[in-house]
Design a protein around this nucleic acid. Structure first.
Length: 259
DNA sequence: ATTCATGATTAGGA
DNA sequence: TCCTAATCATGAAT
């Protein structure tokens, strides 16, 4: 089970990082359009009626990321403590759910032990631009998130897939669900920003989720995101920490994707 | 009036 | 040049 999850999530991680990277680079390329070098056009077409605040500057984005980084860093202990409390609180419920799920699994298909964990592949097909957009949209509409699985590094995954019928019962699903619930709680406690970006921003560890009001959204580790936005360097396979990331001279720069 | 959240500014360091 | 950390300024909430 763990092996299956690890393999699946490793693949998902790379795909979503690639998508995130592309989203960031698209956003950056828009910010550097002729005549708009400093102005960052807010994504979306239905924004003109708002009048005020239709554009934000690169400096604003940088300040925003910088403030979020430092202020989250200051409160990381509080967030972690709250997350732990909530995890302990939901552990009992998860255990009950696991027991029930195992019972059901055994009753329904006792000869197929792997049936307890199934992931719809189509949910992670990123071959077409449409499916990428769908996934990105699904990821950042408030019903999604990311968390780090112990010993498996930073992994991105879709909570919609984890929280619905993509999983079917079984112990592993219950354990993951427990983490998802914990994450949801953390997000619910840390969400609600409504700032220049006019969106909801949620923090978990060093991950940042920004849902822009116009539907365009992106997500990545905050330092990496800011780094991509300001340097035109994008490497989804690299270290999320820009300090040890693509600043490496041996790492070739990647151009922003052609729109 | 006070507290809190947040954008912006500044100094210092790599 | 860009980051962090500290600090200031300001508006909203209490």
């Amino acid at each position: 089970m763990v092996g299956i999850i690890t393999g699946k999530f490793s693949s998902i991680q790379m795909q979503l990082k690639q998508s995130t990277c592309e989203a960031v680079m698209i956003l950056r390329s828009r910010s550097l359009m002729p005549g708009g070098k400093e102005k960052l056009q807010q994504a979306g077409d239905g924004n003109s009626e708002r009048g005020v605040g239709s554009t934000i500057t690169v400096s604003q984005v940088s300040n925003w990321f910088g403030n979020k980084r430092i202020r989250y860093k200051k409160n990381i202990g509080k967030f972690q403590e709250e997350a732990n409390l909530y995890a302990a609180k939901t552990a009992v419920n998860a255990a009950h759910a696991a027991a029930t799920a195992v019972q059901n699994s055994q009753a329904n298909s006792p000869t197929t032990p792997n049936s307890g964990f199934q992931m719809k592949d189509e949910e992670f097909q990123l071959d077409s631009a449409e499916s990428k957009n769908t996934l990105l949209s699904n990821m950042f509409t408030g019903s999604s998130g990311s968390f780090n699985l112990p010993n498996y590094g930073d992994m991105f995954l879709s909570m919609q897939s984890l929280n619905g019928d993509s999983y079917q019962g079984a112990q592993v699903g219950a354990n993951v669900q427990s983490q998802v619930d914990t994450l949801r709680h953390v997000i619910s406690q840390t969400a609600g920003y409504n700032d220049a970006l006019r969106g909801n921003t949620m923090y978990l560890n060093d991950q940042v989720f920004s849902t822009f009001s116009q539907g365009f959204s992106l997500s990545c580790a905050a330092p990496t995101c800011a780094y991509w936005l300001t340097t035109a360097q994008c490497d989804p396979s690299g270290n999320p920490n820009p300090d040890t990331h693509v600043k490496d001279e041996e790492q070739s720069e990647r151009e922003a994707p052609i729109l």
